[in-house]
């Protein structure tokens, strides 16, 4: 197993290197950092600007291959992912923003996974009954709605709730805001800001996963071994929980492992809608205010998350399935 993972990892490193290099060329050729200074008033002296951009390896007058090699050397020798057009170090930016993203995603993702699995398994056992139809219909509605629409709709709802109760229950701009001076106020304020986006994320994650889990569960409910379990004398509910659900969790395990690993980068829309300054927002900003190194760094980071996700999935399936573990 260890040898297998090492081999896969090596393959992924090659793929990642190629993909990130390709993105570097794309980003460096289309995002011109000079544009950031074009609107400066008074204009920056061209000579000074050239020197500045050259120092940050962002000068479009330098051949792109040369810039790439400099950048590559920086990454491999000093773990230096480059500078933004205003001279900030990308490493600093990313290492701050990724935790913002994680703080936003963590609770919603975890709760969504648990709710999704339970709802999916439960509705499968009640196939075509009104409760199943209600839940699957609602899940379909959520899956068919872009997440930013859900976010915005939830904000409109929240405003109305706030207005109606006269208390600001929901906060939805940014990660933190003004808060009182009582004990734990900072923490409470953060929770308040997290409430709405977390609910939205939970809903999206749960709706998506419940559809997958329901299908898997329906498949495993028809398996012979569930019939064997019933023939042993297990009542239906126990046979379902112990035999059908346990096996239906194997593919879910791989999905969960994957979504946990990609949590750092997962929520572009939620970040944008709720103004969380996370990695997704940073990426979009980097495209808008040309910052090629930022774009490449976020891409590389996402790629690493995907690789971790793939390997975590393998490990998850090995844990859940003895056929893979011992076969």
């Amino acid at each position: 197993m260890a040898r297998y993972i090492a081999k896969r990892l090596a393959n992924y490193v090659v793929l990642l290197f190629l993909a990130v290099s390709a993105v570097y060329f794309l980003a460096a050729s289309t995002l011109n950092a000079r544009a950031v200074y074009a609107v400066r008033n008074p204009p920056v002296d061209p000579g000074v600007l050239d020197a500045m951009l050259y120092r940050w390896n962002l000068n479009d007058k330098t051949p792109i291959l040369e810039r790439y090699l400099v950048w590559l050397k920086g990454v491999f020798t000093h773990w230096d992912w480059g500078f933004t057009a205003t001279g900030a170090w990308v490493n600093d930016d990313v290492s701050i923003k990724m935790w913002v993203s994680l703080r936003l995603m963590l609770i919603g993702t975890l709760a969504g996974i648990i709710v999704g699995i339970l709802v999916g398994a439960w509705t499968a056992t009640r196939q075509y009954k009104p409760s199943d139809r209600a839940f699957t219909g609602f899940a379909l509605l959520i899956v068919c709605t872009p997440s930013f629409v859900i976010g915005i709709a939830s904000q409109i709802l929240a405003i109305n709730v706030n207005r109606w109760t006269g208390v600001t229950i929901f906060e939805f701009v940014g990660e933190a805001g003004r808060h009182g001076s009582y004990f734990g106020a900072v923490f409470f304020d953060r929770l308040q800001h997290l409430l709405l986006p977390t609910l939205a994320l939970l809903l999206i994650q749960a709706a998506f996963l419940s559809r997958i889990q329901r299908n898997l569960m329906l498949d495993s409910l028809g398996e012979d071994y569930v019939r064997t379990a019933r023939a042993k004398g297990l009542p239906k509910s126990k046979a379902v929980m112990k035999h059908a659900l346990r096996t239906a969790l194997i593919p879910t395990g791989t999905y969960v492992a994957f979504s946990l690993a990609t949590m750092f980068t997962g929520a572009f829309y939620t970040e944008k809608v709720f103004s969380f300054p996370g990695l997704g927002a940073y990426f979009v900003d980097s495209l808008m205010n040309p910052n090629p190194h930022g774009v490449v760094a976020v891409t590389a980071f996402s790629g690493v998350c995907v690789v971790c996700g793939a390997i975590l999935s393998d490990i998850a399936v090995a844990i859940l399935d003895p056929r893979v573990r011992l076969g």
Binding site: D224, Y225, T228, R246, T247
Partner: peptide, 15 residues
């Protein structure tokens, strides 16, 4: 008690 036809699928694979 019952013995089913296909012993390949009649036992739960994970126990």
């Amino acid at each position: 008690a019952m013995v089913f036809q296909d012993p390949l699928s009649a036992l739960t694979p994970v126990y």
